[in-house]
Protein backbone atom coordinates (compact mmCIF):
# COMPACT_ATOMS: atom_id res chain seq x y z
CA UNK A 1 0.00 0.00 0.00
CA UNK A 2 1.32 3.41 -0.91
CA UNK A 3 1.85 5.99 1.81
CA UNK A 4 -0.25 8.60 0.00
CA UNK A 5 -3.04 9.62 2.43
CA UNK A 6 -6.41 8.20 1.40
CA UNK A 7 -9.75 7.13 2.77
CA UNK A 8 -9.90 3.39 3.34
CA UNK A 9 -13.49 2.14 3.24
CA UNK A 10 -14.30 -1.24 4.81
CA UNK A 11 -17.97 -2.09 4.25
CA UNK A 12 -19.55 -5.44 3.42
CA UNK A 13 -22.71 -4.08 1.76
CA UNK A 14 -21.76 -3.69 -1.88
CA UNK A 15 -24.17 -0.85 -2.62
CA UNK A 16 -23.16 1.14 0.45
CA UNK A 17 -19.47 0.62 -0.32
CA UNK A 18 -19.81 1.46 -4.02
CA UNK A 19 -21.90 4.57 -3.40
CA UNK A 20 -19.62 5.81 -0.64
CA UNK A 21 -16.55 5.40 -2.85
CA UNK A 22 -18.22 7.21 -5.76
CA UNK A 23 -19.26 9.99 -3.41
CA UNK A 24 -15.77 10.39 -1.95
CA UNK A 25 -14.18 10.35 -5.42
CA UNK A 26 -16.65 12.99 -6.57
CA UNK A 27 -15.47 15.07 -3.60
CA UNK A 28 -11.86 14.48 -4.77
CA UNK A 29 -10.72 12.16 -1.99
CA UNK A 30 -8.38 9.30 -2.89
CA UNK A 31 -10.28 6.15 -1.89
CA UNK A 32 -9.65 2.46 -1.54
CA UNK A 33 -12.48 0.03 -0.76
CA UNK A 34 -12.55 -3.37 0.93
CA UNK A 35 -15.49 -5.74 1.32
CA UNK A 36 -14.20 -7.36 4.50
CA UNK A 37 -11.98 -6.70 7.48
CA UNK A 38 -9.78 -9.61 6.44
CA UNK A 39 -9.15 -8.09 3.00
CA UNK A 40 -8.15 -4.82 4.61
CA UNK A 41 -5.84 -6.47 7.14
CA UNK A 42 -4.14 -8.45 4.38
CA UNK A 43 -3.11 -5.18 2.73
CA UNK A 44 -2.51 -3.12 5.81
CA UNK A 45 0.98 -1.83 6.59
CA UNK A 46 2.18 0.77 9.04
CA UNK A 47 2.74 3.02 6.05
CA UNK A 48 -1.03 3.40 5.54
CA UNK A 49 -1.93 7.09 5.78
CA UNK A 50 -5.25 8.89 5.86
CA UNK A 51 -8.20 7.40 7.72
CA UNK A 52 -10.38 4.31 7.93
CA UNK A 53 -14.16 4.46 7.47
CA UNK A 54 -15.27 1.21 9.05
CA UNK A 55 -18.69 -0.48 9.19
CA UNK A 56 -19.23 -1.69 12.74
CA UNK A 57 -21.37 -4.72 11.79
CA UNK A 58 -20.05 -7.10 9.20
CA UNK A 59 -20.15 -10.84 8.64
CA UNK A 60 -16.87 -12.56 9.39
CA UNK A 61 -14.59 -10.21 11.31
CA UNK A 62 -16.64 -7.22 12.45
CA UNK A 63 -15.45 -3.63 12.78
CA UNK A 64 -14.77 -3.81 16.50
CA UNK A 65 -12.55 -6.86 16.08
CA UNK A 66 -10.65 -5.18 13.24
CA UNK A 67 -10.10 -2.14 15.46
CA UNK A 68 -8.68 -4.36 18.21
CA UNK A 69 -6.40 -6.12 15.74
CA UNK A 70 -5.16 -2.77 14.37
CA UNK A 71 -4.53 -1.52 17.90
CA UNK A 72 -2.61 -4.69 18.55
CA UNK A 73 -0.48 -3.97 15.48
CA UNK A 74 0.04 -0.41 16.81
CA UNK A 75 -1.67 1.15 13.79
CA UNK A 76 -2.13 4.91 14.12
CA UNK A 77 -4.70 5.16 11.33
CA UNK A 78 -7.67 7.15 12.69
CA UNK A 79 -10.95 5.20 12.55
CA UNK A 80 -14.44 6.56 11.89
CA UNK A 81 -17.03 3.93 12.69
CA UNK A 82 -20.19 3.75 10.61
CA UNK A 83 -23.02 2.37 12.71
CA UNK A 84 -26.54 1.28 11.99
CA UNK A 85 -29.70 2.03 13.87
CA UNK A 86 -29.40 1.32 17.59
CA UNK A 87 -25.68 0.59 17.63
CA UNK A 88 -24.82 3.49 19.91
CA UNK A 89 -23.60 1.25 22.78
CA UNK A 90 -21.22 -0.43 20.32
CA UNK A 91 -20.03 2.97 19.10
CA UNK A 92 -19.34 4.07 22.67
CA UNK A 93 -17.28 0.92 23.14
CA UNK A 94 -15.39 1.69 19.93
CA UNK A 95 -14.64 5.24 21.11
CA UNK A 96 -13.19 3.82 24.33
CA UNK A 97 -10.91 1.71 22.18
CA UNK A 98 -9.61 4.85 20.51
CA UNK A 99 -11.84 5.45 17.49
CA UNK A 100 -11.78 9.15 16.55
CA UNK A 101 -15.47 9.34 15.72
CA UNK A 102 -18.60 7.51 14.64
CA UNK A 103 -21.45 8.31 12.30
CA UNK A 104 -24.90 6.78 12.04
CA UNK A 105 -26.40 5.54 8.78
CA UNK A 106 -27.92 7.18 6.85
CA UNK A 107 -25.66 10.22 7.12
CA UNK A 108 -25.44 13.61 5.43
CA UNK A 109 -22.51 13.93 3.04
CA UNK A 110 -21.29 17.10 4.75
CA UNK A 111 -21.19 15.49 8.18
CA UNK A 112 -19.20 12.52 6.93
CA UNK A 113 -16.76 14.70 4.96
CA UNK A 114 -16.18 16.88 8.02
CA UNK A 115 -15.39 13.84 10.10
CA UNK A 116 -13.08 12.50 7.38
CA UNK A 117 -11.26 15.85 7.14
CA UNK A 118 -10.83 15.92 10.86
CA UNK A 119 -9.55 12.33 10.96
CA UNK A 120 -7.13 12.99 8.11
CA UNK A 121 -5.96 16.12 9.95
CA UNK A 122 -5.26 14.04 13.04
CA UNK A 123 -3.35 11.53 10.94
CA UNK A 124 -1.27 14.30 9.28
CA UNK A 125 -0.42 15.77 12.69
CA UNK A 126 0.55 12.38 14.00
CA UNK A 127 2.74 11.84 10.96
CA UNK A 128 4.44 15.19 11.46
CA UNK A 129 5.16 14.43 15.08
CA UNK A 130 6.48 11.03 14.14
CA UNK A 131 8.67 12.48 11.43
CA UNK A 132 10.11 15.07 13.79
CA UNK A 133 10.75 12.41 16.33
CA UNK A 134 12.42 10.31 13.71
CA UNK A 135 14.73 13.15 12.68
CA UNK A 136 15.61 13.89 16.33
CA UNK A 137 16.47 10.25 16.80
CA UNK A 138 18.58 10.23 13.69
CA UNK A 139 20.47 13.28 14.94
CA UNK A 140 20.91 11.78 18.41
CA UNK A 141 22.39 8.68 16.84
CA UNK A 142 25.27 10.75 15.38
CA UNK A 143 26.48 11.90 18.84
CA UNK A 144 29.54 10.29 20.42
CA UNK A 145 29.26 8.88 23.95
CA UNK A 146 31.10 11.84 25.40
CA UNK A 147 28.91 14.33 23.46
CA UNK A 148 25.83 12.51 24.76
CA UNK A 149 27.14 12.81 28.34
CA UNK A 150 27.79 16.51 27.90
CA UNK A 151 24.36 17.01 26.29
CA UNK A 152 22.62 15.27 29.19
CA UNK A 153 24.32 17.64 31.65
CA UNK A 154 23.51 20.68 29.47
CA UNK A 155 19.89 19.67 29.47
CA UNK A 156 20.01 19.32 33.25
CA UNK A 157 21.09 22.98 33.28
CA UNK A 158 24.67 22.53 34.47
CA UNK A 159 27.21 25.28 33.66
CA UNK A 160 30.31 24.45 31.57
CA UNK A 161 32.49 24.87 34.64
CA UNK A 162 30.47 22.32 36.59
CA UNK A 163 30.43 19.89 33.66
CA UNK A 164 34.22 20.21 33.33
CA UNK A 165 34.70 19.37 37.01
CA UNK A 166 32.18 16.52 36.96
CA UNK A 167 33.76 14.93 33.89
CA UNK A 168 37.28 15.85 34.94
CA UNK A 169 38.04 17.56 31.60
CA UNK A 170 39.01 21.10 30.73
CA UNK A 171 36.40 23.77 30.36
CA UNK A 172 37.66 24.37 26.83
CA UNK A 173 36.99 20.74 25.90
CA UNK A 174 33.45 21.08 27.28
CA UNK A 175 32.94 24.11 25.08
CA UNK A 176 34.03 22.15 21.99
CA UNK A 177 31.68 19.24 22.85
CA UNK A 178 28.89 21.69 23.48
CA UNK A 179 29.33 23.32 20.09
CA UNK A 180 29.38 19.90 18.39
CA UNK A 181 26.15 18.85 20.15
CA UNK A 182 24.37 22.04 19.05
CA UNK A 183 25.65 21.64 15.52
CA UNK A 184 24.75 17.96 15.20
CA UNK A 185 21.28 18.53 16.72
CA UNK A 186 20.77 21.41 14.29
CA UNK A 187 19.92 24.10 16.81
CA UNK A 188 21.29 27.26 18.36
CA UNK A 189 19.01 27.35 21.36
CA UNK A 190 19.41 25.36 24.55
CA UNK A 191 15.62 25.53 25.07
CA UNK A 192 15.06 23.80 21.71
CA UNK A 193 17.58 21.13 22.58
CA UNK A 194 15.80 20.45 25.87
CA UNK A 195 12.48 20.04 24.03
CA UNK A 196 14.00 17.64 21.52
CA UNK A 197 15.58 15.48 24.20
CA UNK A 198 12.30 15.37 26.15
CA UNK A 199 10.35 14.49 22.99
CA UNK A 200 12.80 11.71 22.18
CA UNK A 201 12.46 10.30 25.72
CA UNK A 202 8.66 10.35 25.58
CA UNK A 203 8.50 9.34 21.93
CA UNK A 204 10.50 6.18 22.44
CA UNK A 205 7.45 4.88 24.27
CA UNK A 206 5.22 5.91 21.32
CA UNK A 207 7.13 4.68 18.31
Amino acid sequence: MASEPKVYVVEDDEAVRDSLMIMLRAADYPVEGFSSADDFLAQWSEQCRGCLVLDIRMPGMDGMTLQKELNHRQSLLPIIFVTGHGDVPLAVEAMKEGAVDFIQKPYAERTLLQKIDQAMGIDAEQQQVLQELQSIKERLATLTDREREVMQMMVEGKANKVIAIDLDISQRTVEIHRARVMQKMGTHSLAHLVRMVLAADQGSALA
Partner: peptide
Protein backbone atom coordinates in the same frame (compact mmCIF):
# COMPACT_ATOMS: atom_id res chain seq x y z
CA UNK B 1 -31.04 1.84 6.22
CA UNK B 2 -28.53 0.19 3.89
CA UNK B 3 -30.23 1.14 0.60
CA UNK B 4 -31.15 4.56 2.04
CA UNK B 5 -27.51 5.21 2.87
CA UNK B 6 -26.49 4.15 -0.63
CA UNK B 7 -29.19 6.37 -2.17
CA UNK B 8 -28.01 9.41 -0.21
CA UNK B 9 -24.39 8.72 -1.17
CA UNK B 10 -25.27 8.40 -4.86
CA UNK B 11 -27.34 11.58 -4.89
CA UNK B 12 -24.58 13.57 -3.09
CA UNK B 13 -22.08 12.30 -5.62
CA UNK B 14 -24.41 13.11 -8.54
Amino acid sequence: NQPLTAILNYTSAA
